[in-house]
Amino acid sequence: HFTSQQLQELEATFQRNRYPDMSTREEIAVWTNLTEARVRVWFKNRRAKWR
């Protein structure tokens, strides 16, 4: 589960860029205190939901 702060950060990034690269995902991981893998999976799932 994600905190509302984490989701806000993830959503804001998603609005700007639906396909963040590795370095962007790592930055998000640092800001949100999540692993890069969790961030990558979140984006994958979010893109699926967005379609």
Results as ranks from 00 to 15, higher is better:
7 L>V: 09
29 A>K: 00
19 Y>T: 05
21 D>L: 04
1 H>Q: 13
23 S>C: 08
14 F>R: 01
45 N>V: 10
40 R>C: 06
48 A>F: 08
37 A>V: 13
37 A>E: 14
23 S>I: 12
37 A>W: 13
47 R>A: 04
25 R>I: 13
5 Q>F: 14
15 Q>F: 06
33 N>E: 08
31 W>G: 09
43 F>S: 00
51 R>N: 11
3 T>D: 06
51 R>I: 13
7 L>N: 07
32 T>G: 03
36 E>K: 03
41 V>D: 12
5 Q>M: 12
17 N>D: 08
19 Y>H: 07
46 R>E: 07
51 R>W: 14
23 S>M: 12
23 S>P: 10
13 T>A: 15
6 Q>F: 08
50 W>P: 05
23 S>D: 07
41 V>G: 10
15 Q>I: 09
26 E>T: 12
38 R>S: 13
50 W>H: 07
29 A>T: 01
10 L>G: 00
25 R>M: 09
3 T>S: 09
19 Y>E: 03
5 Q>G: 08
4 S>R: 14
4 S>I: 13
42 W>T: 01
27 E>C: 10
40 R>H: 07
41 V>E: 15
22 M>G: 06
46 R>A: 06
15 Q>T: 09
22 M>R: 15
22 M>V: 09
12 A>K: 12
50 W>I: 08
2 F>W: 08
32 T>C: 09
22 M>L: 14
49 K>T: 11
14 F>I: 01
38 R>P: 02
1 H>A: 12
3 T>L: 04
46 R>M: 06
20 P>N: 00
24 T>L: 12
50 W>S: 07
4 S>W: 13
24 T>N: 06
40 R>L: 05
33 N>M: 07
14 F>L: 01
46 R>F: 04
19 Y>C: 11
22 M>C: 07
15 Q>K: 11
31 W>D: 09
37 A>P: 10
40 R>A: 08
38 R>E: 15
10 L>E: 00
26 E>S: 10
2 F>I: 11
11 E>F: 03
37 A>L: 15
38 R>K: 15
10 L>R: 00
33 N>V: 05
45 N>G: 07
18 R>M: 14
5 Q>R: 11
50 W>K: 06
50 W>E: 15
28 I>G: 01
31 W>E: 12
31 W>Y: 14
23 S>F: 08
6 Q>H: 04
6 Q>G: 02
8 Q>A: 14
34 L>W: 04
18 R>Q: 13
43 F>A: 00
34 L>M: 09
13 T>Q: 15
42 W>I: 01
20 P>G: 02
8 Q>C: 12
9 E>T: 15
3 T>P: 02
28 I>Y: 02
17 N>M: 08
48 A>S: 08
